[in-house]
């Protein structure tokens, strides 16, 4: 329950629910069983998020993915508070649809476009950070192709803000290991202060060997939670 000397149990976490979110329970469960964190749910119409240390924007189909994925959710009352929270240095984790909401709210740069091959992709893939081994994490999305203009890409690379890239099981980042056509194999990005992480793969679904054949997602959550709890 306790990572090193950090007491993560006392972390106050709010998990935002939109109509169509369906990974909210997975997030709450992972944070509770592995870190002892008791999260609270925040409904999308709420204009306040209360006293929290971390906001989680869970995955799947907010507002049925109508219009553009994440775009309708980005204008919901709760997101105005989440943006203020992030701008003031608050920690936010956006997974899949949560990442789409973060870019549509302009908390993170770029945009997530329809996958290169136009298919909804639901399968385990490998991703890695600059310091990690290849991690086996599931993806489940139709609009996950990361796009940003060259200036933004240069900025992300120069400042090490690319959190995760798609790779193969040996850690090689290549065209073949890129499932959706994301520029520079980008699977996740950090905000400038690294307190906001948006990523398309689902670490919360890969925290138990019994539930998906990989527990690598826990390494991602460990890394992020340790950073924001410092």
């Amino acid at each position: 329950m306790i990572q090193g000397s950090l007491n993560l149990e006392s972390l106050r976490v709010g998990v935002v629910q939109f109509p169509g979110s369906n990974c909210d329970v997975d997030c709450v469960d992972s944070l509770n069983r592995h870190y002892g964190i008791k999260s609270k749910y925040i409904w999308h119409t709420s204009s306040t998020i209360g006293d929290v240390d971390l906001i989680v924007l869970p995955g799947r189909f907010s507002f049925g993915d109508y219009f553009r994925s994440g775009a309708l959710a980005s204008h919901s009352p709760v997101m105005q508070s989440v943006k203020k929270f992030a701008d003031a240095g608050g920690a936010v984790l956006g997974i899949c649809n949560g990442f789409q909401i973060l870019v549509e709210t302009k908390i993170l740069p770029g945009m997530l476009l329809h996958n290169e091959k136009l298919q909804f992709i639901c399968k385990p893939v490998f991703i890695k950070s600059q310091s990690s081994r290849p991690l086996k994490i599931p993806i489940a999305h139709g609009e996950g192709r990361y796009f940003a203009d060259q200036n933004v890409l240069n900025h992300l690379e120069k400042n090490n803000l690319v959190a995760y890239r798609y790779c193969d099981e040996n850690g090689e980042v290549s065209r073949e290991s890129n499932p959706n056509g994301s520029l520079q194999n980008i699977a996740g990005v950090y905000s400038e202060n690294r307190k906001v992480l948006g990523m398309m793969p689902h670490p919360e679904r890969a925290c138990d060997l019994l539930l998906g054949g990989s527990a690598d997602g826990k390494e991602i959550l460990d890394d992020f939670l340790k950073r924001i709890a410092l």
């Binding site: 476009l113 329809h114 996958n115 290169e116 091959k117 136009l118 796009f147 056509g181």
Partner: peptide, 14 residues
């Protein structure tokens, strides 16, 4: 529509 420099996979498929 997508900007000219952005890959439009739907357009390309058509």
């Amino acid at each position: 529509q997508l900007k000219g420099e952005v890959l439009d996979p739907e357009g390309r498929a058509i």
